[in-house]
Design a protein around this nucleic acid. Structure first.
Lengths: 160, 160
DNA sequence: GCCCTGAAGTTCGTGGGACGAACTATCCGG
DNA sequence: CCGGATAGTTCGTCCCACGAACTTCAGGGC
Protein backbone atom coordinates (compact mmCIF):
# COMPACT_ATOMS: atom_id res chain seq x y z
CA UNK A 1 0.00 0.00 0.00
CA UNK A 2 1.67 3.22 -1.07
CA UNK A 3 2.14 5.61 1.80
CA UNK A 4 4.51 8.24 3.00
CA UNK A 5 7.15 7.07 5.45
CA UNK A 6 4.84 7.95 8.30
CA UNK A 7 2.01 5.94 6.76
CA UNK A 8 -0.06 8.86 5.58
CA UNK A 9 -1.23 9.61 2.07
CA UNK A 10 -0.24 12.88 0.46
CA UNK A 11 -2.86 15.13 -1.05
CA UNK A 12 -1.86 14.41 -4.65
CA UNK A 13 -1.91 10.65 -4.29
CA UNK A 14 -5.11 10.90 -2.23
CA UNK A 15 -6.85 12.80 -5.01
CA UNK A 16 -5.72 10.41 -7.71
CA UNK A 17 -6.50 7.28 -5.75
CA UNK A 18 -9.86 8.54 -4.56
CA UNK A 19 -10.71 9.32 -8.18
CA UNK A 20 -9.76 5.75 -9.05
CA UNK A 21 -12.04 4.51 -6.29
CA UNK A 22 -14.96 6.73 -7.28
CA UNK A 23 -14.57 5.71 -10.92
CA UNK A 24 -14.75 2.06 -9.97
CA UNK A 25 -17.81 2.54 -7.77
CA UNK A 26 -19.49 4.70 -10.41
CA UNK A 27 -18.89 2.02 -13.05
CA UNK A 28 -20.23 -0.67 -10.75
CA UNK A 29 -23.33 1.35 -10.05
CA UNK A 30 -23.87 2.08 -13.74
CA UNK A 31 -23.57 -1.60 -14.58
CA UNK A 32 -26.44 -2.32 -12.20
CA UNK A 33 -28.73 -0.22 -14.41
CA UNK A 34 -27.34 -1.55 -17.69
CA UNK A 35 -25.54 1.73 -18.27
CA UNK A 36 -22.00 2.59 -19.11
CA UNK A 37 -20.35 5.20 -16.87
CA UNK A 38 -20.51 7.77 -19.68
CA UNK A 39 -24.22 7.11 -20.24
CA UNK A 40 -24.81 7.41 -16.50
CA UNK A 41 -22.96 10.68 -16.46
CA UNK A 42 -25.02 12.00 -19.35
CA UNK A 43 -28.22 11.06 -17.54
CA UNK A 44 -27.05 12.77 -14.36
CA UNK A 45 -26.28 15.98 -16.20
CA UNK A 46 -29.68 15.92 -17.89
CA UNK A 47 -31.53 15.46 -14.60
CA UNK A 48 -31.32 19.20 -14.09
CA UNK A 49 -32.77 20.21 -17.46
CA UNK A 50 -32.48 19.55 -21.20
CA UNK A 51 -29.32 20.98 -22.80
CA UNK A 52 -28.10 21.81 -26.25
CA UNK A 53 -25.24 19.74 -27.66
CA UNK A 54 -22.78 22.57 -27.34
CA UNK A 55 -23.47 23.09 -23.68
CA UNK A 56 -23.55 19.36 -23.00
CA UNK A 57 -20.22 18.91 -24.73
CA UNK A 58 -18.70 21.73 -22.74
CA UNK A 59 -20.05 20.35 -19.48
CA UNK A 60 -18.86 16.81 -20.13
CA UNK A 61 -15.58 17.88 -21.71
CA UNK A 62 -16.21 15.90 -24.89
CA UNK A 63 -15.46 16.49 -28.57
CA UNK A 64 -18.60 17.23 -30.55
CA UNK A 65 -18.41 13.96 -32.44
CA UNK A 66 -17.96 12.02 -29.20
CA UNK A 67 -21.11 13.57 -27.79
CA UNK A 68 -23.02 12.83 -31.00
CA UNK A 69 -22.10 9.16 -30.59
CA UNK A 70 -22.92 9.08 -26.89
CA UNK A 71 -26.31 10.68 -27.44
CA UNK A 72 -26.94 8.31 -30.39
CA UNK A 73 -26.32 5.27 -28.23
CA UNK A 74 -28.27 6.59 -25.25
CA UNK A 75 -31.15 7.59 -27.51
CA UNK A 76 -31.12 4.13 -29.05
CA UNK A 77 -31.55 2.77 -25.51
CA UNK A 78 -34.64 4.90 -25.12
CA UNK A 79 -33.23 7.02 -22.28
CA UNK A 80 -32.86 10.38 -23.99
CA UNK A 81 -34.36 12.12 -26.99
CA UNK A 82 -33.35 14.91 -29.27
CA UNK A 83 -35.85 17.74 -29.48
CA UNK A 84 -35.91 20.50 -32.04
CA UNK A 85 -34.94 23.92 -30.74
CA UNK A 86 -37.73 26.34 -31.76
CA UNK A 87 -35.29 29.23 -31.70
CA UNK A 88 -32.56 27.71 -33.84
CA UNK A 89 -33.39 25.04 -36.41
CA UNK A 90 -29.76 23.97 -36.50
CA UNK A 91 -29.77 23.11 -32.83
CA UNK A 92 -31.26 20.23 -30.85
CA UNK A 93 -31.93 19.98 -27.14
CA UNK A 94 -31.26 16.66 -25.48
CA UNK A 95 -33.74 15.65 -22.82
CA UNK A 96 -34.46 12.62 -20.71
CA UNK A 97 -37.36 10.44 -21.79
CA UNK A 98 -39.85 9.29 -19.15
CA UNK A 99 -37.97 6.05 -18.84
CA UNK A 100 -34.66 7.89 -18.88
CA UNK A 101 -35.82 10.09 -16.04
CA UNK A 102 -36.70 7.11 -13.96
CA UNK A 103 -33.46 5.29 -14.68
CA UNK A 104 -31.49 8.47 -14.03
CA UNK A 105 -33.17 8.90 -10.67
CA UNK A 106 -32.50 5.32 -9.64
CA UNK A 107 -28.92 5.40 -10.88
CA UNK A 108 -28.33 8.71 -9.13
CA UNK A 109 -29.81 7.50 -5.86
CA UNK A 110 -27.96 4.20 -5.98
CA UNK A 111 -24.70 5.92 -6.77
CA UNK A 112 -25.20 8.38 -3.91
CA UNK A 113 -25.61 5.49 -1.52
CA UNK A 114 -22.54 3.66 -2.79
CA UNK A 115 -20.35 6.77 -2.70
CA UNK A 116 -21.61 7.69 0.75
CA UNK A 117 -20.63 4.24 2.00
CA UNK A 118 -17.06 4.92 0.98
CA UNK A 119 -16.87 7.52 3.74
CA UNK A 120 -18.23 5.09 6.32
CA UNK A 121 -14.98 5.13 8.25
CA UNK A 122 -15.22 8.85 8.92
CA UNK A 123 -17.17 10.49 11.72
CA UNK A 124 -19.92 12.92 10.71
CA UNK A 125 -17.76 15.91 11.55
CA UNK A 126 -14.89 14.50 9.53
CA UNK A 127 -17.21 13.91 6.60
CA UNK A 128 -18.33 17.53 6.82
CA UNK A 129 -14.72 18.61 6.96
CA UNK A 130 -13.89 16.55 3.90
CA UNK A 131 -16.91 17.99 2.07
CA UNK A 132 -15.83 21.52 2.95
CA UNK A 133 -12.27 21.09 1.72
CA UNK A 134 -12.96 18.97 -1.34
CA UNK A 135 -15.92 21.20 -2.17
CA UNK A 136 -13.56 24.16 -2.15
CA UNK A 137 -11.30 22.38 -4.64
CA UNK A 138 -14.31 21.61 -6.83
CA UNK A 139 -15.59 25.19 -6.73
CA UNK A 140 -12.15 26.75 -7.15
CA UNK A 141 -11.59 24.69 -10.29
CA UNK A 142 -15.09 25.39 -11.63
CA UNK A 143 -15.98 21.74 -12.04
CA UNK A 144 -19.29 21.42 -13.88
CA UNK A 145 -22.30 19.88 -12.21
CA UNK A 146 -21.81 16.38 -13.50
CA UNK A 147 -23.47 15.15 -10.31
CA UNK A 148 -26.16 16.94 -8.37
CA UNK A 149 -26.41 17.71 -4.71
CA UNK A 150 -28.97 15.62 -2.92
CA UNK A 151 -31.82 18.07 -2.58
CA UNK A 152 -30.38 20.35 -5.23
CA UNK A 153 -32.61 19.23 -8.06
CA UNK A 154 -34.44 21.47 -10.47
CA UNK A 155 -37.08 23.58 -8.72
CA UNK A 156 -35.91 22.18 -5.41
CA UNK A 157 -38.32 19.30 -5.74
CA UNK A 158 -35.96 16.69 -4.39
CA UNK A 159 -36.53 15.55 -0.86
CA UNK A 160 -33.81 16.56 1.51
CA UNK B 1 -23.02 25.44 -10.41
CA UNK B 2 -24.66 22.75 -8.31
CA UNK B 3 -24.58 23.51 -4.61
CA UNK B 4 -26.59 22.96 -1.51
CA UNK B 5 -28.95 25.78 -0.57
CA UNK B 6 -26.18 27.27 1.54
CA UNK B 7 -23.73 27.14 -1.35
CA UNK B 8 -21.67 24.23 -0.06
CA UNK B 9 -20.97 20.97 -1.79
CA UNK B 10 -21.92 17.72 -0.08
CA UNK B 11 -19.39 14.98 0.40
CA UNK B 12 -20.93 12.69 -2.22
CA UNK B 13 -21.06 15.32 -4.95
CA UNK B 14 -17.63 16.56 -3.93
CA UNK B 15 -16.16 13.09 -4.38
CA UNK B 16 -17.79 12.55 -7.74
CA UNK B 17 -16.97 15.97 -9.09
CA UNK B 18 -13.39 15.89 -7.84
CA UNK B 19 -13.00 12.53 -9.55
CA UNK B 20 -14.29 14.14 -12.75
CA UNK B 21 -11.73 16.92 -12.33
CA UNK B 22 -8.84 14.57 -11.60
CA UNK B 23 -9.79 12.40 -14.58
CA UNK B 24 -9.73 15.41 -16.84
CA UNK B 25 -6.37 16.62 -15.55
CA UNK B 26 -4.92 13.11 -15.71
CA UNK B 27 -6.06 12.76 -19.34
CA UNK B 28 -4.60 16.14 -20.21
CA UNK B 29 -1.30 15.24 -18.63
CA UNK B 30 -1.23 11.86 -20.39
CA UNK B 31 -1.85 13.52 -23.73
CA UNK B 32 1.25 15.65 -23.21
CA UNK B 33 3.35 12.47 -23.23
CA UNK B 34 1.45 10.82 -26.11
CA UNK B 35 -0.19 8.46 -23.66
CA UNK B 36 -3.76 7.50 -23.03
CA UNK B 37 -4.93 7.71 -19.41
CA UNK B 38 -4.98 3.91 -19.15
CA UNK B 39 -1.43 3.66 -20.48
CA UNK B 40 -0.32 6.35 -18.04
CA UNK B 41 -1.92 4.47 -15.22
CA UNK B 42 -0.16 1.26 -16.24
CA UNK B 43 3.19 3.06 -16.29
CA UNK B 44 2.54 4.55 -12.85
CA UNK B 45 1.77 1.17 -11.36
CA UNK B 46 4.91 -0.33 -12.91
CA UNK B 47 7.13 2.40 -11.50
CA UNK B 48 7.22 0.47 -8.26
CA UNK B 49 8.30 -2.85 -9.73
CA UNK B 50 7.47 -5.37 -12.49
CA UNK B 51 4.24 -7.30 -11.93
CA UNK B 52 2.61 -10.44 -13.24
CA UNK B 53 -0.52 -10.07 -15.32
CA UNK B 54 -2.72 -11.42 -12.59
CA UNK B 55 -1.52 -8.94 -10.03
CA UNK B 56 -1.62 -6.08 -12.52
CA UNK B 57 -5.18 -6.96 -13.49
CA UNK B 58 -6.22 -7.06 -9.86
CA UNK B 59 -4.54 -3.74 -9.13
CA UNK B 60 -6.05 -1.97 -12.12
CA UNK B 61 -9.44 -3.67 -11.82
CA UNK B 62 -9.36 -4.96 -15.39
CA UNK B 63 -10.54 -8.14 -17.06
CA UNK B 64 -7.65 -10.34 -18.15
CA UNK B 65 -8.33 -9.76 -21.83
CA UNK B 66 -8.46 -5.97 -21.29
CA UNK B 67 -5.07 -6.05 -19.64
CA UNK B 68 -3.64 -8.20 -22.45
CA UNK B 69 -4.73 -5.53 -24.92
CA UNK B 70 -3.44 -2.65 -22.83
CA UNK B 71 -0.05 -4.30 -22.39
CA UNK B 72 0.03 -5.15 -26.13
CA UNK B 73 -0.51 -1.54 -27.08
CA UNK B 74 1.91 -0.16 -24.49
CA UNK B 75 4.52 -2.73 -25.51
CA UNK B 76 4.05 -1.76 -29.14
CA UNK B 77 4.86 1.82 -28.10
CA UNK B 78 8.12 0.59 -26.60
CA UNK B 79 7.23 1.57 -23.04
CA UNK B 80 6.87 -1.85 -21.41
CA UNK B 81 8.09 -5.33 -22.08
CA UNK B 82 6.94 -8.79 -21.16
CA UNK B 83 9.58 -10.87 -19.42
CA UNK B 84 9.48 -14.59 -18.89
CA UNK B 85 8.93 -15.71 -15.31
CA UNK B 86 11.69 -18.18 -14.44
CA UNK B 87 9.48 -19.82 -11.85
CA UNK B 88 6.40 -20.36 -13.97
CA UNK B 89 6.72 -20.69 -17.72
CA UNK B 90 3.06 -19.81 -18.16
CA UNK B 91 3.51 -16.46 -16.52
CA UNK B 92 5.03 -13.23 -17.71
CA UNK B 93 6.15 -10.24 -15.73
CA UNK B 94 5.51 -6.82 -17.20
CA UNK B 95 8.25 -4.26 -16.69
CA UNK B 96 9.03 -0.76 -17.88
CA UNK B 97 11.60 -0.45 -20.61
CA UNK B 98 14.34 2.18 -20.25
CA UNK B 99 12.30 4.56 -22.31
CA UNK B 100 9.16 3.59 -20.46
CA UNK B 101 10.83 4.35 -17.17
CA UNK B 102 11.77 7.78 -18.34
CA UNK B 103 8.36 8.55 -19.76
CA UNK B 104 6.72 7.19 -16.61
CA UNK B 105 8.86 9.45 -14.44
CA UNK B 106 8.08 12.52 -16.52
CA UNK B 107 4.38 11.71 -16.72
CA UNK B 108 4.23 11.05 -13.00
CA UNK B 109 6.07 14.27 -12.14
CA UNK B 110 4.02 16.34 -14.54
CA UNK B 111 0.80 14.87 -13.24
CA UNK B 112 1.84 15.53 -9.63
CA UNK B 113 2.39 19.17 -10.48
CA UNK B 114 -0.94 19.51 -12.26
CA UNK B 115 -2.88 17.79 -9.49
CA UNK B 116 -1.12 19.84 -6.83
CA UNK B 117 -2.15 23.01 -8.64
CA UNK B 118 -5.78 22.00 -8.25
CA UNK B 119 -5.41 22.57 -4.50
CA UNK B 120 -3.87 26.01 -4.99
CA UNK B 121 -6.82 27.71 -3.34
CA UNK B 122 -6.24 25.89 -0.07
CA UNK B 123 -3.84 26.92 2.68
CA UNK B 124 -1.11 24.44 3.57
CA UNK B 125 -2.93 23.37 6.72
CA UNK B 126 -6.13 22.86 4.76
CA UNK B 127 -4.27 20.80 2.20
CA UNK B 128 -2.90 18.63 5.00
CA UNK B 129 -6.38 18.30 6.42
CA UNK B 130 -7.75 17.24 3.04
CA UNK B 131 -4.92 14.72 2.65
CA UNK B 132 -5.63 13.30 6.08
CA UNK B 133 -9.34 12.81 5.47
CA UNK B 134 -9.19 11.70 1.85
CA UNK B 135 -6.24 9.48 2.71
CA UNK B 136 -8.37 7.82 5.33
CA UNK B 137 -11.07 7.12 2.74
CA UNK B 138 -8.44 5.70 0.39
CA UNK B 139 -6.93 3.48 3.07
CA UNK B 140 -10.29 2.39 4.49
CA UNK B 141 -11.39 1.25 1.04
CA UNK B 142 -8.05 -0.44 0.29
CA UNK B 143 -7.49 1.46 -2.92
CA UNK B 144 -4.50 0.02 -4.74
CA UNK B 145 -1.39 2.08 -5.34
CA UNK B 146 -2.25 3.29 -8.78
CA UNK B 147 -0.27 6.44 -8.03
CA UNK B 148 2.78 6.67 -5.82
CA UNK B 149 3.57 9.04 -3.02
CA UNK B 150 6.22 11.55 -3.90
CA UNK B 151 9.23 10.08 -2.18
CA UNK B 152 7.58 6.72 -1.79
CA UNK B 153 9.35 5.00 -4.66
CA UNK B 154 10.91 1.61 -4.57
CA UNK B 155 13.93 1.50 -2.26
CA UNK B 156 13.14 5.07 -1.23
CA UNK B 157 15.27 6.36 -4.04
CA UNK B 158 12.95 9.21 -4.95
CA UNK B 159 13.97 12.64 -3.77
CA UNK B 160 11.74 13.96 -1.04
C1' DG C 1 4.36 -41.34 -12.74
C1' DC C 2 -0.10 -40.08 -14.37
C1' DC C 3 -4.18 -37.50 -14.33
C1' DC C 4 -7.20 -33.95 -13.17
C1' DT C 5 -8.20 -29.46 -11.59
C1' DG C 6 -6.93 -24.98 -11.54
C1' DA C 7 -4.04 -21.14 -12.94
C1' DA C 8 -1.76 -17.78 -16.45
C1' DG C 9 -2.41 -15.54 -20.24
C1' DT C 10 -4.08 -15.04 -25.15
C1' DT C 11 -7.44 -14.92 -28.90
C1' DC C 12 -11.84 -13.73 -30.71
C1' DG C 13 -16.02 -11.31 -31.19
C1' DT C 14 -18.57 -7.44 -29.89
C1' DG C 15 -19.81 -2.94 -28.54
C1' DG C 16 -18.71 1.57 -26.37
C1' DG C 17 -16.11 5.69 -26.67
C1' DA C 18 -12.57 9.10 -27.81
C1' DC C 19 -10.69 12.47 -31.41
C1' DG C 20 -9.89 15.30 -35.71
C1' DA C 21 -11.15 16.47 -40.36
C1' DA C 22 -14.65 17.46 -43.34
C1' DC C 23 -19.23 18.15 -44.26
C1' DT C 24 -24.25 20.21 -44.40
C1' DA C 25 -27.55 23.37 -42.83
C1' DT C 26 -28.63 27.50 -40.50
C1' DC C 27 -27.86 32.03 -38.23
C1' DC C 28 -26.74 36.73 -38.11
C1' DG C 29 -24.37 40.97 -38.89
C1' DG C 30 -22.68 44.13 -42.24
C1' DC D 1 -27.71 39.38 -50.17
C1' DC D 2 -23.48 37.42 -48.78
C1' DG D 3 -19.86 35.75 -46.04
C1' DG D 4 -18.17 34.18 -41.78
C1' DA D 5 -19.41 31.66 -37.89
C1' DT D 6 -22.14 28.28 -35.47
C1' DA D 7 -24.69 23.62 -34.56
C1' DG D 8 -24.38 19.22 -35.19
C1' DT D 9 -23.39 14.99 -38.03
C1' DT D 10 -20.55 11.79 -40.69
C1' DC D 11 -16.38 9.33 -41.48
C1' DG D 12 -12.19 7.13 -40.46
C1' DT D 13 -9.29 5.52 -36.98
C1' DC D 14 -7.73 3.78 -32.75
C1' DC D 15 -8.26 2.75 -27.81
C1' DC D 16 -10.58 0.11 -24.43
C1' DA D 17 -13.86 -2.77 -21.97
C1' DC D 18 -15.87 -7.55 -21.30
C1' DG D 19 -17.06 -12.61 -21.63
C1' DA D 20 -16.34 -17.02 -23.75
C1' DA D 21 -13.23 -20.17 -25.27
C1' DC D 22 -8.81 -21.64 -25.93
C1' DT D 23 -3.73 -23.27 -25.07
C1' DT D 24 -0.13 -24.18 -21.97
C1' DC D 25 1.63 -25.18 -17.60
C1' DA D 26 1.69 -26.17 -12.39
C1' DG D 27 0.82 -28.93 -8.65
C1' DG D 28 -1.51 -32.10 -5.74
C1' DG D 29 -3.59 -36.56 -5.15
C1' DC D 30 -3.72 -41.30 -5.99
Amino acid sequence: MAKNDDGSVGVVAALVRSAFLVNAVYAESAREYDLTPQQGQLLCVLMAQPYGMGELGATLGLAKSSLTGLVDRTERNGLVERRADPQDTRAVRVALTLRGGRIAEEFYTGTCRRIEELTGGLAAAERDGLAALLGRVVLDNKVPAVFMEPGGGAAGDRER
